[in-house]
């Protein structure tokens, strides 16, 4: 990929995040710049292993187990040491 292509894909991904997060503010460009494809990586090109260290699962928690138990289960099946949830969702 050329510098132009990587930059275009990177900015496209950021705009997609804005859409997902419902950020409606526009971007102002201070400095036209391109990024070098020889280091770093587009988030959309992360391998499964890389996502296991820099990813997030939008999990549909079932009613039975606690949030803590769900995270423990997830760590176990994914075989990872570290994971954390965003705010408990406990029994009513």
């Amino acid at each position: 990929m050329s510098k132009e292509d990587v930059t275009r894909e990177g900015v496209k991904f950021i705009r997609k995040l804005d859409e997902y997060g419902e950020v409606n503010d526009r971007f102002i460009t201070l400095k036209e710049a391109r990024t070098d494809p020889t280091y770093g990586k587009l988030p959309t090109q992360r391998s499964a292993e890389e996502l296991l260290d820099l990813g997030v699962v939008n999990l549909d928690k079932p009613p039975g187990p606690t949030s803590h138990e769900v995270v423990a289960w997830l760590k176990n099946i994914l075989g990872i040491e570290k994971a954390g949830h965003g705010g408990t969702l406990e029994r009513p």
Partner: peptide
């Protein structure tokens, strides 16, 4: 309780 529970992995 069920529903949206985002879980971050590794360094995230």
């Amino acid at each position: 309780m069920s529903g949206v529970l985002p879980v971050a992995l590794g360094s995230a």
